[in-house]
Simulated scan of single mutants.
Amino acid sequence: MTINHRSHQTLPVPLANTAEGSDDAYGVTSENHAYSSADQSFQKYFTDIFSKLPYNTQRAYISDYNEFSIFCKQNNFQGLNNSFTNNEECIKEYVALLCQTPLAYRTIKRRLSALSKFLGMAKLPNPIIRSVYLRDFIRLSLIENKKFRMSHKQAVPLTIEMVEQINNKIIPDSLLELRDLAIINLMFDALLRADELVRVCIEHVSHRNNTVLVVSSKSDQSGEGQYRYVSSSTLSMINEYINEANINPSTSLPRDQNDPRSISKGVLFRRVNNHKTALHPYQETHSANQDAVLNYSSIYRLWQRIAVRAGIQENITPHSGRVGGAVSLAEDGASLPELQLAGGWQSPEMPGHYTKQASVKRGGMAKLSSKHKR
């Protein structure tokens, strides 16, 4: 468990590939550290309770906390510690950032619930429960940013026509744009959620079978993973992105496979430096990997960048690829089982909704309007 030797003890940061039942997955090492009371409380809860929770419950808690951890690192916050004032200010700024994204009200509440859980596990001061100021700030921030109403709105679909518009208008001239285009196309093809995309590893992509293995999905309660289709054009984009990332821009020579800025294994889509020419260093066993991987805010910003570059007026978001892929399939006449397989849905309820939408567009009034060129 990583120890912070500053005046306040920070909460141990779980890594993104956790919930496997091993201590190392949670940043716990075999070194003989003198744990603080917060560390000991966290370790006791993890050993006795947390590691016994269902796989998806563990994954959800840790994914939410990792989003907060990345926010702290990128904004130079200490993280959660023994200072009530520090925790209150840190969480307040995090809520302010979340309210700038299209995350639904219930998603923000779930993330704050995860933070409250971790504070309780570590027995650290919890302003989410104790601070009247923070509770009112959260409530009013959500109202001001219309999160209650946005939670009932469906994402604007990214249709196949919009995907073609993006691919035709944007000629990538940097590693950043190569990565962004590959992400947009993969999310559309495989109907990926943002939290599924960030876990895609290079080993999960099969060029022979035109598939990507989704190893952790909200609808995959067994944790066995799901295979989704990937088009040949998207695979070509992924290859271009990998090839560009594996060239050192300073020497124009291939990077060594052990170079932490190269892609030979592990997480496929990573953060790009400010010059848009190289990836942030990434090592699978390194504790600072969260600085190199993407989070929801990063993916949201890249969707906005792509929309502007392609001249798309609709407010597309990371969920637009999944919704748009389903709508495009339904409009093309895909059956309900085909839709379920494409998006990994266990229940026919949601894909059935898209099928009904498509049926309206092919219905009697649609045919009448087309006949009379209305």
Score class of each variant (00 low, 15 high):
residue 220 D to E: 09
residue 220 D to V: 12
residue 220 D to Q: 06
residue 220 D to W: 07
residue 220 D to M: 06
residue 220 D to K: 08
residue 220 D to G: 07
residue 221 Q to P: 00
residue 221 Q to I: 14
residue 221 Q to F: 13
residue 222 S to I: 12
residue 222 S to Y: 09
residue 222 S to C: 04
residue 222 S to N: 13
residue 222 S to M: 14
residue 224 E to S: 15
residue 224 E to K: 15
residue 225 G to Y: 06
residue 225 G to P: 03
residue 225 G to L: 00
residue 225 G to F: 08
residue 226 Q to G: 04
residue 226 Q to S: 13
residue 226 Q to E: 14
residue 227 Y to N: 12
residue 227 Y to E: 14
residue 228 R to I: 08
residue 228 R to M: 07
residue 229 Y to H: 14
residue 229 Y to F: 14
residue 230 V to F: 04
residue 230 V to W: 09
residue 230 V to D: 03
residue 230 V to A: 10
residue 231 S to G: 09
residue 231 S to Y: 11
residue 232 S to L: 02
residue 232 S to T: 01
residue 233 S to N: 11
residue 233 S to R: 07
residue 233 S to V: 03
residue 233 S to P: 02
residue 234 T to D: 05
residue 235 L to A: 04
residue 235 L to M: 00
residue 235 L to N: 04
residue 235 L to P: 05
residue 235 L to R: 03
residue 236 S to W: 00
residue 236 S to P: 03
residue 236 S to V: 02
residue 237 M to Y: 10
residue 237 M to I: 04
residue 237 M to K: 11
residue 237 M to H: 10
residue 238 I to C: 02
residue 238 I to L: 08
residue 238 I to W: 06
residue 238 I to M: 06
residue 238 I to K: 09
residue 239 N to I: 04
residue 239 N to S: 10
residue 239 N to K: 12
residue 239 N to P: 09
residue 239 N to Y: 05
residue 240 E to L: 12
residue 240 E to W: 05
residue 241 Y to A: 06
residue 241 Y to S: 05
residue 242 I to L: 03
residue 242 I to Q: 03
residue 242 I to Y: 00
residue 243 N to V: 09
residue 244 E to D: 08
residue 244 E to H: 03
residue 244 E to G: 04
residue 245 A to H: 05
residue 245 A to K: 02
residue 246 N to S: 02
residue 246 N to F: 10
residue 246 N to A: 00
residue 247 I to C: 00
residue 247 I to W: 00
residue 247 I to E: 01
residue 248 N to G: 04
residue 248 N to I: 00
residue 248 N to Y: 08
residue 248 N to R: 08
residue 249 P to T: 00
residue 250 S to R: 15
residue 251 T to R: 07
residue 251 T to Q: 10
residue 251 T to C: 02
residue 251 T to I: 09
residue 252 S to I: 11
residue 252 S to C: 13
residue 252 S to V: 13
residue 252 S to P: 07
residue 253 L to C: 12
residue 254 P to I: 01
residue 254 P to Y: 01
residue 254 P to A: 06
residue 255 R to V: 04
residue 255 R to G: 11
residue 255 R to L: 11
residue 256 D to F: 13
residue 256 D to T: 10
residue 256 D to A: 12
residue 257 Q to D: 10
residue 257 Q to I: 12
residue 257 Q to S: 13
residue 257 Q to C: 12
residue 257 Q to H: 13
residue 258 N to M: 10
residue 258 N to V: 02
residue 259 D to R: 07
residue 260 P to N: 00
residue 260 P to V: 02
residue 260 P to I: 01
residue 261 R to C: 14
residue 261 R to V: 11
residue 261 R to N: 14
residue 261 R to H: 13
residue 261 R to W: 05
residue 261 R to I: 12
residue 262 S to E: 07
residue 263 I to P: 06
residue 263 I to H: 03
residue 263 I to A: 04
residue 263 I to G: 03
residue 263 I to N: 01
residue 264 S to A: 12
residue 264 S to G: 15
residue 265 K to W: 07
residue 265 K to L: 08
residue 265 K to F: 11
residue 265 K to P: 03
